Simulated scan of single mutants.
Amino acid sequence: MYVPSHFAADQDAVTELLSNHGAANLVTSTERGLLATLLPFVYDPEAGDHGALLGHVARNNEQWLLPALGESLVIIQRSDAYISPSWYPSKAEHGRVVPTWNYTTAHVYGRLVIHDDPAWVEDLVRRLTTLHEATSEQPWTVDHAPARFIAGQLRAIVGVELLITRVEAKRKLSQNRPDADIDGVIAGLRGKGELDSADDVERAQQDPVRRS
């Protein structure tokens, strides 16, 4: 991944991104070529030497059956948004501005381990559910469904674990623009209702790289 220094994510930002993201693409190189599946993951910082991403695929998905050749990759992406140059005060000053795209992403590389084990998969499903039900007023749990039904659902999926070897992360959030332009970006995004992207730009103003 091409990461200019002003868009580099520090370790705290990487940990936060691994811990709090939506679904991500698992990409493996196999004898049949590249395969990819969009999956929700749970980050386990204690697994392996550098942590792990835990998820599951449908049993009928051939990706888990075909051995991964070399490293596997999980592509995480959070908020992304079109940035209009009309939001920059500098447009009126000199006009030397162009559109761009803001985004936060991480390429997480590692060794893929398959867990065709109902107990492992059940624990993973409970962790996923706890993570994503945390903000609900009445959080759903696995125990709310009949045990025999859950057992059948678990037999239909297989666990996957990416033991992380390295992470390349990038936060392209207008850090290279003057403060007035950044304020314009935040206002423009909020005006479009893209609140998550606006919040990310606002947080990026506190980056150590930008403050230095």
Rank of each mutant, 00 (worst) to 15 (best):
V3P: 01
P4Y: 12
P4E: 06
D10Y: 08
D12H: 15
A13M: 13
N20G: 02
H21F: 04
A23V: 13
N25Y: 15
V27E: 00
T28I: 10
S29Q: 11
T30H: 07
L34F: 13
A36E: 00
L39R: 05
L39P: 09
D49M: 03
D49T: 09
G51L: 08
L53H: 06
L54G: 06
L54Q: 08
N61Y: 11
N61M: 10
Q63P: 08
L65S: 15
P67Y: 03
A68M: 11
G70C: 10
L73F: 01
I76E: 05
I76H: 03
D80W: 11
A81T: 05
Y82L: 03
S86G: 08
K91P: 09
E93I: 14
H94A: 03
T100I: 08
W101S: 09
T104R: 14
T104M: 13
A106G: 00
I114H: 02
D116L: 03
A119L: 07
V121F: 00
E122G: 15
E122P: 14
L124Q: 14
L124R: 12
R127G: 03
L131F: 03
T141D: 06
V142A: 05
H144N: 15
A145P: 02
P146Q: 03
I150F: 11
Q153I: 05
L154W: 07
E161H: 11
V167S: 01
K172R: 03
S174Y: 01
S174P: 04
Q175S: 02
N176Q: 09
D179S: 11
D183G: 10
D183Q: 11
V185I: 04
I186P: 09
A187Y: 09
G188M: 06
D199H: 10
D200Y: 09
R203T: 07
S212Q: 14
S212L: 10
